[in-house]
Simulated assay, not measured.
Amino acid sequence: MNHHQLEKDIEHLEHVISHISAEDRIPLSYWRNRIDSVSGAALVPSQATRIKRLNAALSALERRQKA
């Protein structure tokens, strides 16, 4: 994945994850797969930090969904 596409994907995920809920029509598993696919790319340190934040935010939503 090229650097520009990777950056666009991370930006999109940051926007979406900050606006979704556990009851959203797109399942959280879809967003988990998207984050995991971006996580597998070669990330610079700042991108890795942003992915960690996305993982934490999505994990919190997943925990709320199970509760």
Rank of each mutant, 00 (worst) to 15 (best):
M1G: 15
M1Y: 13
N2D: 12
H3K: 12
H3L: 14
H4L: 12
H4M: 13
H4R: 13
H4C: 04
L6I: 09
L6P: 01
L6V: 05
E7C: 09
K8T: 03
K8D: 11
D9S: 12
D9T: 10
D9H: 09
D9N: 15
I10F: 07
E11R: 01
E11A: 12
E11Q: 14
L13I: 00
E14A: 06
E14P: 02
H15D: 15
H15C: 06
H15T: 11
V16L: 05
V16C: 01
I17P: 03
S18F: 08
S18D: 14
H19D: 13
I20N: 02
I20E: 03
I20P: 02
S21G: 12
A22I: 00
A22T: 08
E23I: 03
D24C: 06
R25M: 11
R25E: 15
R25D: 15
I26V: 14
I26F: 12
P27A: 09
P27G: 06
L28Y: 02
S29H: 08
Y30A: 11
Y30N: 14
Y30P: 05
Y30L: 07
W31M: 04
N33D: 15
N33S: 12
N33H: 10
I35R: 00
I35G: 02
I35L: 01
D36H: 09
D36A: 06
S37V: 08
V38I: 12
V38H: 01
S39T: 12
S39W: 05
G40I: 04
G40N: 13
A42C: 04
A42S: 14
A42E: 14
L43V: 03
L43Q: 07
L43A: 06
L43N: 01
V44K: 10
V44R: 07
S46A: 13
S46N: 12
Q47W: 00
A48L: 12
A48T: 10
A48D: 13
T49G: 08
T49F: 13
R50D: 01
R50C: 02
R50N: 04
I51Q: 00
K52Y: 10
K52M: 12
K52T: 14
R53H: 11
R53E: 14
R53S: 15
R53Y: 11
L54V: 00
L54C: 01
N55R: 08
N55I: 01
N55E: 09
A56Y: 13
A57Y: 02
L58W: 06
L58T: 02
S59Y: 14
L61E: 03
L61V: 03
E62K: 01
E62L: 02
E62H: 02
R63F: 08
R63Q: 11
R64H: 13
R64D: 09
Q65R: 10
Q65G: 08
Q65V: 00
Q65S: 09
Q65L: 05
K66R: 14
K66S: 09
K66N: 09
A67T: 15
A67I: 13
